[in-house]
């Protein structure tokens, strides 16, 4: 079931993302992809390997499902968020979109748990997930702003 759900979402996201007009330059997308991967890997390595608060399924198929979340769903959603953030004018709408995306990321995490892709330990709280995704979104936004500032000097965005 997890395979059907997350791989379908991944393929549909990839397809939709590649056939629609993009507001992010290729270089920005590369930087964001690597950065989001860095944040997620470090989160898992620290919370999973060191503190045993999150555990990934040891079944290889479920592991591949998690990989689709980590390397496709989350980075593309993050890029969609950044594009929306750039296209909107009003600050309160930007904030609202941020909150919605954070809720979406937390939702994906708990859907993955429900479908057996990962499991949280008893000491884990939903607020830790919220804090993690708030941190992820804000830091990625900061990096994006910086990269866009640099990229605009050399390429047309």
């Amino acid at each position: 079931m997890a395979l059907v759900v997350f791989c379908s979402i991944s393929v549909l996201l990839l397809l939709s993302y590649s056939v629609t007009k993009r507001r992010l330059h290729l270089f920005e997308r590369i930087v964001i992809w690597v950065f989001v991967l860095l944040l997620q890997n470090n989160f898992f390595w620290m919370m999973g390997l060191n503190y045993k608060l999150v555990e990934l399924s040891h079944h290889w198929l479920q592991f591949l499902v998690y990989d689709s979340i980590r390397s496709i769903i989350v980075p593309i959603c993050m890029m969609l968020y950044l594009e929306l953030h750039e296209s909107l004018d009003r600050k309160w709408i930007k904030g609202l979109i941020g909150v919605l995306f954070i809720m979406g990321f937390v939702g994906i995490e708990y859907l993955a748990e429900w479908l057996g892709v990962l499991s949280h330990s008893g000491n884990w709280s939903v607020w830790y997930s919220v804090a993690n995704w708030v941190f992820n979104v804000l830091l990625t936004l900061l990096v994006f702003k910086r990269i866009r500032f640099m990229a605009r000097k050399e390429v047309t965005i």
């Binding site: 270089f27 590369i30 930087v31 690597v34 000097k153 390429v155």
Partner: peptide, 10 residues
Amino acid sequence: TIISIVFLLI
């Protein structure tokens, strides 16, 4: 500069 960053990050 932006290319150097991309090549470093990849």
